[in-house]
Computed example of a mutant assay.
Amino acid sequence: MALNLQDIPRVKTITKPDFINQYFKPQKPVVIEQCITHWPAYSKWNLDYMKAVAGDVTVPLYDDRPVDYKDGFNEPHFKMKMADYIDLLKKEPTRYRIFLWNILKEVPQLQDDFTFPDFGLRLMKDLPMLFFGGRDSYTFMHYDIDLANIFHFHFEGTKQIILFDQQQNDYLYKVPHSLITREDIDFANPDFEKWPLLKKAKGYKTELNHGEVLYMPEGYWHYMRYITPGFSMSLRAIARNPKNFSKAVYNLLIMRYYDNAMRRIQGQKWIDWKNEQAIVRAKKLQQALKN
């Protein structure tokens, strides 16, 4: 048995009115295949180019270890020179990923390789973020703290993506006071005996290739696995839905600070309690569905 996933719609190109009416307003994902063929980045951006322009920059790296109470919010697990990291990516599979790397801050010249597309949403132009990963590395299922509208541009290789909207939260074993599901769920090959509610979740899937753009609506859960070494850039626009915007403000101003404070006070007990609560809440829901 597999997850209940439908293919994300694909278009070659799309007009701004069609994007707004067909995807943004109904909050549905879409892949745009030929949106950035005019960018210099389309022909220039690959791992060798990034090594050439950013090889001396020290980059933050993350792996797939479970959350530890000693880890700060989005605190990297390791650091390495970009040149050494790219050599590692090309040499062998590695769990190390670059996550939320601000290219404007670290390598301003990369800004010359792309322009901000007009999708009808006001993009946050000071926050273009890069993400790198080696073969078979992946992100845990999560959603972004600001519940933004995200445009995810992929470069080099292939990337598998699974999405769920916020209406699926009850079926995903969401961990309270966080933005993740249980980290021991393998969304590439889920164990439905252990995680039976996943059978009720309805989501989307696709594989992104070089130059393709994925639109992820506000607050969408996303799991990403690098089929081959590669990297992506995300541009984001603030959440427009009032409920999502208020959630974003709560996450940014209250939730993350409360979570960090509880980690300091209770240590690993806090992490363990949150993980257990994901199970407790799921069992309550299962019982309610039976009744």
Score class of each variant (00 low, 15 high):
residue 181 T to K: 09
residue 245 F to L: 15
residue 176 P to V: 11
residue 11 V to I: 11
residue 197 L to E: 08
residue 190 P to R: 01
residue 175 V to Q: 05
residue 138 Y to T: 01
residue 159 K to F: 05
residue 270 W to Y: 15
residue 180 I to V: 14
residue 251 N to Q: 14
residue 136 D to Y: 04
residue 201 A to N: 07
residue 161 I to M: 11
residue 236 R to H: 03
residue 8 I to L: 09
residue 224 M to C: 13
residue 6 Q to D: 15
residue 93 P to V: 02
residue 125 K to W: 03
residue 222 H to R: 02
residue 266 Q to K: 14
residue 178 S to P: 14
residue 78 F to C: 09
residue 101 W to M: 01
residue 91 K to V: 04
residue 43 S to M: 05
residue 127 L to Q: 12
residue 109 Q to R: 07
residue 196 P to E: 02
residue 119 F to R: 01
residue 167 Q to S: 13
residue 68 D to Q: 09
residue 98 I to E: 10
residue 285 L to K: 06
residue 254 I to R: 12
residue 138 Y to M: 05
residue 220 Y to P: 09
residue 102 N to G: 07
residue 240 R to P: 01
residue 173 Y to N: 09
residue 62 Y to L: 01
residue 247 K to Y: 15
residue 57 V to L: 04
residue 183 E to K: 13
residue 267 G to F: 02
residue 194 K to N: 07
residue 137 S to A: 06
residue 192 F to R: 06
residue 121 L to K: 09
residue 41 A to F: 04
residue 62 Y to N: 04
residue 2 A to Q: 14
residue 123 L to M: 12
residue 206 T to P: 04
residue 69 Y to A: 13
residue 28 K to I: 12
residue 168 Q to P: 15
residue 210 H to M: 00
residue 88 L to S: 11
residue 61 L to V: 11
residue 136 D to P: 04
residue 289 L to K: 04
residue 289 L to V: 00
residue 157 G to Q: 05
residue 17 P to E: 14
residue 275 N to A: 03
residue 126 D to A: 10
residue 235 L to F: 05
